[in-house]
């Protein structure tokens, strides 16, 4: 039963994506909305990304210090391990899980409210492809801007670790900096950036799908918002496993 309903939802999602990815009726209007969405979904998320990244970077550094407190481990391992965690998982997967909460719920509730207040019906009556008009700018904005957020997150996380070293003196700052530079594999950065593109697509499109098909009133909009966060989080984790297997083996 669950498999059947999941397959049905996936089929509906595919049809929905088919409607979203058509040529816009008016390119000028599309670009106007695209820029607005970059500001709303991307630029407005920068403060959250910075705050979370600084703290996670700091915590990672402390954790690494505590877990590598052995005479057999060089001190620079703290910086090296922190860097690997940040590049491989935090700044891509975990950041996108956080964005699934912030951006995903925002998208689902916005589109869901438009559905229950008949704004989407109004677009359809006018002859506008509402799925394309409302969703394409959001998906494109997220996919094109996510890498800016990921790069911001990488730098600020490492800076968080640096600040912990500078303030507490757990590890000498020069040793930490040496650690984050040593044995650097540039592919890991590309790996994080490529993964994030898939996650950004999932966050924006799944949230839009749940919002677009809301039926009922305010209560259902809230449910759609929650369901979109839960579903996109699960899909992100599933994709993380698949992409890691494909890209790091």
């Amino acid at each position: 039963m669950i498999i059947q309903s999941s397959l049905k939802s996936f089929g509906n999602y595919c049809i929905f994506i088919g409607r979203v990815f058509t040529l816009p009726d008016r390119w000028r209007e599309f670009f106007r909305r695209y820029v607005n969405e970059i500001v709303k979904l991307g630029i407005d998320s920068i403060p959250l990304v910075i705050v979370i990244s600084i703290f996670i970077g700091a915590v990672c550094t402390i954790q690494m210090y505590l877990n590598t407190s052995s005479p057999l481990m060089p001190r620079y391992a703290v910086g090296l391990a922190t860097r690997e965690i940040i590049l491989l998982e935090f700044s891509s997967s975990i950041l996108c899980l956080i964005l699934a909460g912030k951006v995903g719920s925002n998208i689902a509730s916005e589109i869901g409210t438009m559905r229950v207040t008949e704004q989407i019906d109004a677009l359809e009556i006018m002859g506008v492809n509402s799925a394309n008009f409302l969703v394409l700018p959001k998906v494109m904005a997220m996919v094109t801007f996510i890498n800016v957020l990921v790069i911001f997150s990488m730098f600020t996380s490492l800076w968080g670790g640096y600040m912990v070293c500078a303030v507490t003196g757990l590890v000498p700052v020069s040793t930490y900096v040496y650690g984050i530079q040593t044995q650097f594999i540039s592919w890991y950065v590309w790996y994080a950036l490529i993964k994030s593109l898939f996650f950004a697509f999932v966050v924006s499109s799944v949230a839009s799908y749940f919002g677009y098909y809301v039926k009922g009133g305010a209560l259902e909009v809230g449910k759609a918002s929650t369901n979109s966060v839960v579903t996109s989080s699960i899909v992100i984790l599933l994709l993380d496993v698949i992409l890691t297997n494909l890209m790091l083996q």
């Binding site: 409210t113 438009m114 207040t117 008949e118 704004q119 019906d121 109004a122 359809e124 009556i125 006018m126 002859g127």
Partner: peptide
């Protein structure tokens, strides 16, 4: 034909 149609919805359905 939808371009020849105007519609007024119960809740106005204005874009917020």
């Amino acid at each position: 034909i939808r371009k020849e149609i105007g519609m007024l919805f119960q809740g106005s359905a204005l874009f917020d």
